[in-house]
Amino acid sequence: MELVWRPLTTADIPEVAALYNAAEAVDDTGELLSEEDFAESFREADLPGGSVAVFAGESLAAYGLVVLRDNPVGTHRVRLDGLVHPEFRRRGIGTRLLPRLAELARVLHVSRHPGMPLTVCTMAESRSAGHVALVEELGFQADRHFYELEVALGESLAQAPIPSGYEIVPFSAARGEEVRLVCNAAFARHWGSVERSPQEWAASFTDSPRFVPESSFLALSQGAVVGFVLARHYPVVEEMTGVRELWIGDVGTLDEHRGRGVASALLSRTLARAGEKGYQRAGLSVDTANPTGALGLYERAGFGVARTWIDYGLPVAF
């Protein structure tokens, strides 16, 4: 089988989305992406220097994408995303693809953050035995585990009280910059977290068609933002599964306001509003080693574990 390797271009988006969803039909990871989702990620990527398309004749057999961080601190963790089409698996493509992506990541890293340590990382769903075996064979180590949690939305969900001295209000674009700064502060000590720049924040929230401001809420103390729940909606999930899902992208509270029920109050309002808006399910991802007790918060809100993801890392010498 003769393979052609070249960088991705935006013209490849339909084929990449088709490959991704063909793989999802086999792998059942729960991660569904549309052409619009790939268009958004391609806009943020360095396609000439940080991507790979693998063709077997006219067919896209595999693809890979290097995802850099805007403001790395300490160690630059560069994510390597990619998939091999189910029809082309077990032919050694993945074994060649991942090291090639790691080398592209090394070159881009050296040009942008010389002197900073580099770790390339990739996520694998725990039941994807082939993916797990591949990354471990290539020397990647499991650095962290994440639970993907889900809860069905309905009348049985309890409404947590708003603690004294706080106010829960809907997200307002006028507070966008304040929320960005609070978000950066709330996640400052979380594993793998980096500060979001104004540009990255806008791409993820205020300018993103996936952001759902009407189901996102802020906690105020003396008029200032001290906590938040920020939600997204991915139409492709509903299109492919028939389930209208609200994705809870970020939940956070400033250190000095934790342990008072602020996050519980925020989350319960988001879930209630989502139910009113016709969402049938809410989902989110949580670090199993999160030191703030976030997993307990979500379990009390009715969430249960649907899947487990493993963040694998490999330090790169240069």
Rank of each mutant, 00 (worst) to 15 (best):
R127V: 08
E136R: 14
R100H: 14
F140H: 00
L153V: 04
R144V: 00
R175E: 10
P117S: 05
S126D: 13
G139W: 03
S172K: 12
L138T: 04
Y166I: 05
A158K: 15
E137R: 15
H113M: 08
I168W: 04
A142E: 11
P163Q: 08
G176L: 06
E125Y: 09
L101E: 02
V110W: 11
A158C: 14
L118S: 01
A158N: 12
M116C: 07
A133H: 08
A124D: 03
D143H: 02
E148V: 13
L134W: 02
H145F: 05
H131I: 01
R175M: 11
S128L: 12
H131Q: 11
R175D: 12
D143W: 00
H131S: 14
Y166N: 08
E167T: 07
V135C: 06
S164E: 15
E178V: 06
E155Y: 07
S128H: 15
A142P: 09
L108Y: 02
A124V: 14
T122W: 01
E125Q: 12
E167I: 01
A102V: 08
N184E: 08
A142G: 07
P170T: 07
A160L: 06
H131C: 11
P161G: 05
L181H: 10
L157K: 05
M123L: 14
E125S: 09
V151P: 06
L101H: 03
C183L: 13
L153H: 02
P163E: 04
E177I: 07
S164R: 14
E137A: 14
Q141K: 11
L181F: 06
V179R: 01
L104A: 07
E148Y: 08
A158S: 15
E155S: 15
E167D: 10
I162E: 10
L149C: 11
V182D: 04
V169N: 11
S128D: 15
V182R: 12
S126I: 10
R144K: 07
L149I: 07
G130H: 03
H131F: 04
V151G: 05
L108K: 03
G115E: 08
A102G: 13
V135Q: 02
V107M: 12
P117V: 04
E155T: 13
G139C: 01
I162L: 12
A102S: 11
